[in-house]
Amino acid sequence: MFEARLVQGNLLKKVVDAVKDLVTDANFDCSSSGFTLQAMDNSHVSLVSLSLRSDGFEHFRCDRNMSMGMSLGNLAKILKCAGNDDIVTMKAADDGDTVTFMFESPKEDRVSDFELKLMDIDSEHLGIPDTDYAATVTLPAAEYQRICRDLSSIGDTVVISATKDGVKFSSSGDVGTANITVRQNTTADKKEEQVSIDLKEPVALTFALRYLNSFAKATPLASHVSLSMARDLPVMVDYQISDMGHLRFYLAPKIED
């Protein structure tokens, strides 16, 4: 059987809210090492990879590897019924066709359980090779969200160029053009405002803002987000989930003909 108890239950809610517009149905894979999900959007343009390590749960038991197919829309509906401070426990039998979510209030005066029907989902699992990225910029998640949102009102795509001077986000469209540059700032007073740039070689890639904007729905999960880029390879947009794992998104750059 599978059983996992998460004290920070709202973390699960944030994860599902971050991916449900990109991916409709997905398989959650459980093993003794943790709870993971890998899924592409319908058009196979972007990929979501979630990893929650078993040691990040208060209690984690998985007797046999299992894959649980869920409608993320329905899962979001159920998780919406959990209180913000509730402890969430997931339970599933090895051969069952449902997963149960139990919500406990912190004061232990309210307990509820919701059963979600599992579904059979054919999904293609992709191997993501370890990559030596040319540049990795780590910036406040809210800043990344703002850049993507602001540039979306100018154009459909963004050119992200990383040089030793900083990382420039440029967009152009009918309205005109926009450039936003973030510079390394590892001495900001507040840790949550720090920006760091790890540059091995300059790189410039063009991406569809629609997807980068969608990834920004993970903003509530982490103070910072990292963008890792290498020439002609998908960007990795990485939100670290403290003490537990990560939620990563991948998007291939647009290629000049």
Binding site: S43, H44, S46, P234, A252, K254
Partner: peptide
């Protein structure tokens, strides 16, 4: 408009 490449051409199928 530049074409949007799909991801499976970058990653291997497992």
């Amino acid at each position: 408009i530049l074409p949007q490449p799909r991801l499976p051409s970058y990653f291997t199928s497992e």
